[in-house]
Design a protein around this nucleic acid. Sequence first.
RNA 1: GGGCCCGUGGCCUAGCCAGGAUAAGGCGGCGGCCUCCUAAGCCGCAGAUCCCCGGUUCGAAUCCGGGCGGGCCCGCCA
Length: 636
Amino acid sequence: MGFRRRCQIVAGVSIRRAMEEARKALERAGVREPRVVPTKSLAFGIVTSTSAFEEAKERGIDAMAYAEEVAARARQHTGPLLAEVRAAQPGYVNFYPDWRRFSEDVVRGVLEDVRSFLYEGLGGGEVVVEHTSVNPNKALHVGHARNVCIGDTVYRLMSKAGRRVTVLNYVDDSGAQMAELLLGFTELGFDLNPPPGMRFDEYCGDSVYVEVNRRAKVDPEIEAKRRRVAKELEERGSDAFKLSREIALRVLRDQLSTCYRLGASYDLLVRESDVVVSGLWDEAFSRLKESGAVYLADRGSKAGCWVADLSGHPVLSKEGDEVLVKSDGSTTYVARDIGFALWKLGESRTSLRFSLWDVRDGRPTYISSEEGVSLRPNSPSLVITVVDSRQRRPQEVVRYALSRIGVSADRYLHYSYEPVLLSKRSAEMLGAKAERSAVQMSGREGIYFKVEQVLDKLVEVAARETSSRRPEWPSERVREVAEAIAVGAFRYGMLKVDSDKQIVFDIEESLRLEGDTGPYLQYSVVRARKILLKAEEAGVEPSPAPSEDLTPHEMQLVREVSVAPLALEDTVKALRIRTLVTQARTLATVFNEFYESCPVIGGGPNAGFRLSLVAAYARVQEELLETLGVPVLDEL
RNA sequence: GGGCCCGUGGCCUAGCCAGGAUAAGGCGGCGGCCUCCUAAGCCGCAGAUCCCCGGUUCGAAUCCGGGCGGGCCCGCCA
């Protein structure tokens, strides 16, 4: 467990307190730089140290004998949470807790204030996170969903940790893809309104866009027309421009309804067509020129272009300099991103204007526009851009350019993740010929699973399960619960795989609701909540203090709850969502094991303690699930 | 050619960054557990050259070097 190593930074309760006790005891026992970590098995106590071993080695003395010595001395110096210190081969010093005191400390800590139990010391500062950023010409597919789930989880995480977070969605409404979509309406005669019952974003992506690309393959004139439309789009007052803005807004509205369904939320929607005319690039450009970071190429393949000088970069220099302004005077994507990065960092004098888009649950969302209030992040300590790993190079170019104009680039973070592929089986269901075990999705070819489509299927499966278990429930209730299960299963599936690993999406597999899935975690909370309810009816009095010695399952659950803050610390500091997922999953497993063997109602002398422990579990797990965006339910 | 990422039982995934005590979980397979707080759960069995070769170390899935295999990036596209 990686996060076991780095713990003593934040003082706090439960495991950290025990670790601190152990550390001090070792120090007083003569260990110079004691390092202490949670054990991975309770057989070795609650915390352990290899410091005595390492020190003995340095001094060339017998390690085990020294560990015994240290353990004997440390035993005199432990605080209230630790009861016993023992040496173990080949030189560990293990600390065993006073389980009754330790458990009480943990349970009280959680029940008093779960937020500070989990997030103490992790707050402060302002964060900007950009995610989603899907071209407004199609409905979201499962690949986009990974971005949304990661980005939204980062937002939730940072907010809970006490940071002020601004969420951005960059809407690229002025690129080639927009021109292609537009062609479908202006040249191929597609109606501006979809057939009845079809969403506009799906209509654009599934019908219009795919058809334009199909036609382009057989009709060479399409390409010429596309170029003409693209050109016309650059003129802000043109009919093409106005139409594209309208279409983009309609698609965006539908896309966002999918994002909302997934639990995401946004503060600012930034349209590229507004960024282009904002003057952000001009400002960045002149600063780049001043600092000598760009030059006008006068020969070679890039003659006539303004190019970023990458010769000073250890890696990028090997791949040639980057074109920022094309020979026709228009900017490249990377150039616009440099300007935008400057704005996100609060380092630009230029602002963007915004007007109200909508208000959801009291939270307003603004969209960039020609008029409205000027907004700009206020020098955030961190700007996170969630975008897949294929953008690593351009993102690095942006960072480098920022550093060249004196903007510290360590505040600018690319949250990279590997893309979502389709399994062979699933790709073939969509009519793709799959030679390999996984294939890339393709908007042009129509090879993708849409988020809505997957969620709807999940709802269907979950509803079937739910109504068979709860035949007495009205269909409305079933539907509501099924929706929460679907979202939980989907988000968990997107988040449980580490970001530097590809996800191979298989539709059959994704409809599973058993095993290592979102519902597994949701179910464990449902069980806990039901116990709380029934125990109260049965008159069980909660008690954070155990009234007799703990059973192994109780210890295991206490231990897992106590360690959750360490997982949170790693998740926040290293932005490793995977750590959080693993912690939530382990916690649920340990709780389920406890559940099987430790009845609360009729649980004997320790019933009151068990009740409080269950409450503590529920509080912690609810927080973790909320952070992951997995809906928490009372029943299912 | 250069750069980045991945490689753990039949399949998928943790653990690797901060090296330690029996390599963890899921799917699939086999066998058990609902008069008892919801069995979307739990228990047991079978199944692993942690891609390979070297090195560092008392100790390597984990660190270093070199290979091999797979993916991605290196556009006057975004």
